[in-house]
Write a protein that binds this DNA or RNA. Structure first.
Lengths: 160, 160
DNA sequence: CAGCACGTTCAATACAGACTGAACGATTTA
DNA sequence: TAAATCGTTCAGTCTGTATTGAACGTGCTG
C-alpha cells in the first residue's frame, strides 16, 4: 500500500513534468527523491524507476542544471548520489522567471526593429516585453520570499 | 525591412511557444495578431504564416481555450475573425496558476495516502503541494493586478 | 437548385525529442 | 595487469504529437 502511494506520486509527478514540457523521467526522479528523502545513486534511480542508466544520468544532470538537484559524494562509496536541494520549489520559480526574462529581452530587441509609426506594432510588442520583464521581477521576489522562509519543513534528518 | 522585423518577431514567438511546450504555430499566431493589431481571418492567418487552414483552425481554438484569443464576427463578412483579448498576458499567468493549482490538488490527495510515520514522506509531499497552492494564489493576485491596470496601451484603434 | 466559401474533423504523415543499448574513458580493486 | 564498476556520450529507435490534405457539413449566393 505504501509502495502503491509512492508509485502513484512518482507517476503523477512524471505526468506533471511532461505537461510542463519537460521529460517525464525528470518528474519521476523528483518524485522518487522526494519520497525517499535521502540521496540516491544512479543505479538506485534506474532500478527503482525501471529506466536506463543513460536516462537517469541525463535527467539528473538536467535537473541539476535547473538547480533542483545536487550531487553529493557519499563518503564510503565512490558512487555519486543525487539529492533534492533545500528548496526545489524556489528553483522551479526561478526557472520560470529566467525564461520570462529571456523572452522579455528577446521581444524588446525585436520591438526596436519596428518603425516608429506602423499602426502601433512597436508599442504592442514592447508592451508584451514589459509584461514578461515585470512578471520575471515579480517571480524573483516571490522566489526570494520562498527561499527566505527557513521553515523546519524539509529539515530534521532523523528519518531513515 | 518592416516585413523582416515582423517576420522575426513571429518566428521568435513561435520558438518561445515551443519552449513552453506549446505548438510553435500557436506562438506564431499570437505574434502575427500582435503585429497586425487587428482581427484577422483564418485565411489571412494561413496565408501569412504559410500554414494549412486546418492548423490555423486548430491553433486558434487552442488559444481561445486558453483565453488568449477571441472570435469576433466582423460585420460585413461572414468569416470569423480572431483577435487578441485585451490582456493576453494576464491570461497567460492565469493558465500557469491553474496548472499549479491542479498540481497542488493532485499532490495533496496523494500525500494523504502516505502512512503517518514513514520517514516524513507525507510531510515532504505536503510541503510541495503547499508550494504549488501558495504559488497559484500568488500568481492569481498578480494576474488581478495586471488586469486591473486598464492602461490605454492596447486601445486607440485608429490604425488600419 | 447548383456552385461556392467557410470552418471543422479525420486519417495519414512528418518531425522533434525522449529514451535506450552499446561503447568508451576513468577509476578502483584484486 | 586484468577485471570490475561507475558515469557519460553517442547513434539509433521509438513514441507522442504537431501539421497537413482531403473529405465533410453548413450556410450563403447566384
Amino acid at each position: 500500500m505504501t509502495d502503491s502511494a509512492a508509485q502513484r506520486l512518482i507517476e503523477a509527478m512524471g505526468l506533471m513534468s511532461q505537461e510542463d514540457g519537460h521529460p517525464r523521467i525528470a518528474g519521476q526522479v523528483l518524485g522518487y527523491l522526494l519520497v525517499e528523502g535521502e540521496p540516491r545513486t544512479l543505479t538506485q534511480l534506474s532500478e527503482a524507476l525501471s529506466i536506463s542508466k543513460a536516462s537517469a544520468s541525463t535527467n539528473t544532470r538536467l535537473l541539476e542544471s535547473k538547480g533542483m538537484l545536487r550531487r553529493v559524494s557519499h563518503v564510503g562509496s565512490r558512487q555519486d548520489a543525487w539529492a533534492l536541494v533545500d528548496h526545489p520549489d524556489g528553483q522551479m520559480i526561478g526557472t520560470i522567471a529566467a525564461r520570462f526574462r529571456r523572452n522579455a529581452d528577446m521581444m524588446r530587441d525585436l520591438a526596436g526593429e519596428f518603425p516608429d509609426r506602423q499602426g502601433g506594432a512597436r508599442e504592442r510588442v514592447n508592451g508584451f516585453a514589459d509584461f514578461y520583464r515585470v512578471s520575471a521581477d515579480f517571480m524573483d521576489e516571490w522566489r526570494e520570499r520562498l527561499l527566505g522562509e527557513t521553515r523546519a519543513k524539509q529539515a530534521s534528518p532523523e528519518d531513515r
